[in-house]
């Protein structure tokens, strides 16, 4: 299964885990599964059906915005990363 990596600030909304193994063949399907298991996490990432504009998603090392956005296909072993904006400093 593809794995979705959860950044530290969002882990409290994902039951404390740093990654989730989720079934699906596109990024959208993975996030649908993620939303069923952790609705509060989905709320942080999505505004309705759209990704929030300060949240970026990468499949392996590539930004999905220049792949096929949420329809970007994923295969077993692929790593999907949620990259939040980091404010501090």
């Amino acid at each position: 299964m593809p794995v979705v990596r959860i950044p530290t600030p969002l882990r409290p909304h994902a039951g404390g885990v740093d990654k989730l193994d989720l079934a699906g063949s596109t990024v959208k399907e993975l996030f649908d599964r993620l939303g069923e298991a952790h609705p509060a996490l989905r709320e942080r990432l999505f505004d309705g059906e759209e990704l929030r504009r300060f949240v970026n998603v990468y499949v392996n090392d590539e930004d999905i915005r220049y792949l096929e956005d949420l329809e970007t296909p994923v295969a077993p072993g692929d790593e999907v990363s949620i990259i939040p904006a980091v404010a501090g400093g």
Binding site: T8, P9, R52, F54, P84, A85, A87, G88
Partner: peptide, 20 residues
């Protein structure tokens, strides 16, 4: 290009809330 808009206050942790 990377982050189109700033997260609204409260949507991201800060050093004061999440530590550093």
């Amino acid at each position: 290009c990377l982050i189109e808009t700033a997260p609204p206050p409260g949507m991201t942790p800060t050093c004061e809330t999440a530590g550093v």
